[in-house]
């Protein structure tokens, strides 16, 4: 019993030590990057953002953010506020979308909460707010496209109110969740009877598993809705497995064929 009490005492001591350590900020935080301006919100949808704190020193820190296929470094300073850390950081300023972050990191809760202000605000690039959760990203081929998602509504019912995305009249159906293209080597028979919209999302699900941050709005719109999707990189091509590369080539072939011939008199 005494021994047990001792263990608890030491553990509490250690953890309280850690709580004050700024290294505990280091990690990846993911969530919605929410526009606060109502006109900007109406013009374009919010995206998932990844803010990664890579290193801390006495009172300075550095990291990077990835949102909508745009990866930017930032550096800044922080101050301890009890168990929390208040960070003020800026992006280099040589990109037209650069700005500055101000956020509070709560290491014990695994939460990063704050705002971002662009250096050059435009109609769609305005102040944002975010509450992000610490996320460990690992590539996991077992992640399936969820069957429970209402895929059809994504491109069809939602299309009428999403003026910022051009769906091009494409169909997205529950067919898209039939295969895991990172695990199963697809055959012609698997993909030949799929709509172009399904093929496109099926192919991009491979990139999504590797944490690719989509530059294309339509794919961001789809994958941002999926729980396991974490944008961590702007180029994942060298991480694709042989099986994934084969599937991508096969699906692409049918996508291109559908784009050229599906609704035309011809081929």
């Amino acid at each position: 019993m005494n021994r047990c009490m001792y263990c608890i005492f030491v553990a509490t001591l250690l953890s309280s030590c850690q709580k004050s350590s700024p290294e505990r900020m280091i990690g990846t935080y993911v969530g919605w990057f929410k526009k606060t301006d109502s006109a900007a919100r109406a013009a374009a949808r919010d995206n998932k953002i990844n803010i990664t704190i890579e290193a801390v020193e006495r009172n300075t820190m550095r990291g990077r953010s990835i949102v909508a296929g745009n990866e930017r470094p930032f550096t800044g300073t922080f101050t301890a506020q009890g168990e929390y850390f208040q960070v003020n950081a800026a992006e280099p300023g040589d990109d037209r979308y650069d700005g500055s972050f101000s956020f509070l990191v709560k290491p014990a809760e695994g939460i990063l909460i704050g705002s971002w202000i662009p250096n050059k605000p435009t109609a769609t690039v305005t102040r944002t707010e975010y509450t992000l959760n610490r996320t460990e990203f690992t590539y996991n081929p077992d992640r399936d496209l969820p069957r429970s998602l209402n895929w059809f509504a994504l491109y069809n019912e939602d299309a009428s109110r999403l003026h910022d995305i051009d769906f091009g009249g494409e169909l997205l159906t529950e067919d898209v969740s039939r295969f895991n293209a990172s695990k199963v080597l697809l055959k012609k028979e698997d993909v030949e009877n799929m709509h172009k919209g399904d093929l496109e999302v099926l192919r991009n699900s491979i990139y999504a598993r590797h944490g690719y941050s989509f530059k294309r709005r339509k794919m961001r719109y789809v994958f941002d809705q999926i729980d396991w999707y974490v944008p961590v990189a702007t180029d994942v091509r060298d991480q694709l497995t042989d099986l994934e590369q084969k599937n991508i080539a096969l699906i692409k072939r049918y996508e291109e064929h559908a784009a050229a011939y599906y609704d035309s008199f011809g081929r």
Binding site: N193, H195, F265
Partner: peptide, 18 residues
């Protein structure tokens, strides 16, 4: 054949092999 295909796709947007 091609005219029917065009018409059916226009009308019903079926799956390509169907």
């Amino acid at each position: 054949l091609r005219a029917w295909k065009w018409f059916l796709v226009f009308l019903l947007a079926p799956r390509p092999m169907d």
